[in-house]
């Protein structure tokens, strides 16, 4: 079937290939604007060979939906380069379990009822796949991040219905944690005439245990008093599971649908950490 790949000849589909056109091969989109070049790569999940190679490097099993070839890259004419990709994020997951591991809610019951007390425990790693990842940065030596307590991202400017010139959303990984919740990392971007915004979000639900959302935002104002200014904003939110569920009335609301609404869940959670940094790009 591969031999017919594409299958479109003069508008006619080759017989037997109609169903191959839906499969996503690597789709690359490029967009240039105000000295920036943005590239988004969207590809199928990794093959078993690619997974084997990545797992031997990482030392732990990768998430079940692994978009290892997906990547969002922002390049500026100054040499600044910012990328968001799945493999770099997984390299920032605790592969040894030294950070103190969560357990599923029924772990104690499970351990009590099993009879095979001598079975070994698999090598620990952070099975929630929480990445200490804020993008993959290449910064020219002439530039330096400044801590910035003052200038948060100007939300008012982002609320304006300016036309979106470029939008994309990429899945990086997703795992159902053996039916104990969900762990998702994705990244999206929108570019307007005067500014752009990237949101790389990790969102975790461990049923009956906790919610965690890590947001990394990159905001660029192309002309801020004659300079291009980039703000990197990191917010970690956490909340015990029961604190979020308590806000839902299961009689009149669909609990599952409500808990899948990440923006709503996020609004219920306390901010645990918030860091803002600024980069002036000539």
């Amino acid at each position: 079937m591969e031999a017919f790949g594409g299958g479109d000849v003069g508008g006619l589909k080759a017989p037997g290939t109609s169903n191959t056109t839906l499969r996503k091969d690597m789709q690359v989109r490029e967009f240039e604007h105000r000295g920036w070049k943005v590239t988004s790569k969207n590809a199928p999940i990794l093959s078993s060979g690619e997974i084997e190679k990545l797992e031997s490097e990482l030392g732990f099993p990768v998430p079940e939906m692994i978009f290892g070839n997906n990547e969002l890259v922002l390049e500026h004419s100054s040499g600044l380069r910012i990328a968001f990709n799945c493999c770099d994020a997984l390299r920032k997951v605790d592969s040894t379990g030294t950070s103190g591991l969560l357990k599923v809610a029924y772990a104690d019951d499970w351990a009590r009822t099993r009879q095979d007390t001598d079975t070994e425990i698999a090598k620990p790693y952070d099975w929630t796949y929480t990445p200490e990842y804020r993008g993959t940065w290449t910064i020219p030596s002439s530039m330096q991040f400044e801590e910035d307590g003052e200038d948060a991202i100007p939300v008012d400017k982002l609320m304006k219905p300016d036309p979106i010139l470029f939008f994309d959303e990429l899945d990086l990984f997703e795992d159902e944690l053996g039916d104990n919740g969900t762990a998702v990392l994705n990244v999206k971007i929108r570019i307007m005439q005067e500014r752009l915004l990237v949101l790389c979000r990790f969102h975790l639900r461990v049923d009956d245990v906790l919610f965690r959302i890590k947001d990394v935002r990159i905001f660029v104002e192309f002309n801020d008093n004659g300079k291009t200014v980039l703000i990197k904003d990191y917010i970690l939110r956490e909340a015990p599971y029961k604190d979020v569920v308590r806000r839902i009335d299961p009689i009149i609301e669909d609990l599952g649908a409500k808990l899948r609404d990440v923006n709503w869940v996020s609004s219920c959670m306390k901010i645990v950490a918030h860091e803002v940094e600024k980069l002036v790009i000539g």
């Binding site: 591991l101 070994e120 698999a122 099975w127 053996g178």
Partner: peptide, 9 residues
């Protein structure tokens, strides 16, 4: 052999 998941179940 069998191994217990680091999830605890």
């Amino acid at each position: 052999d069998f191994a217990v998941s680091p999830r605890g179940a």
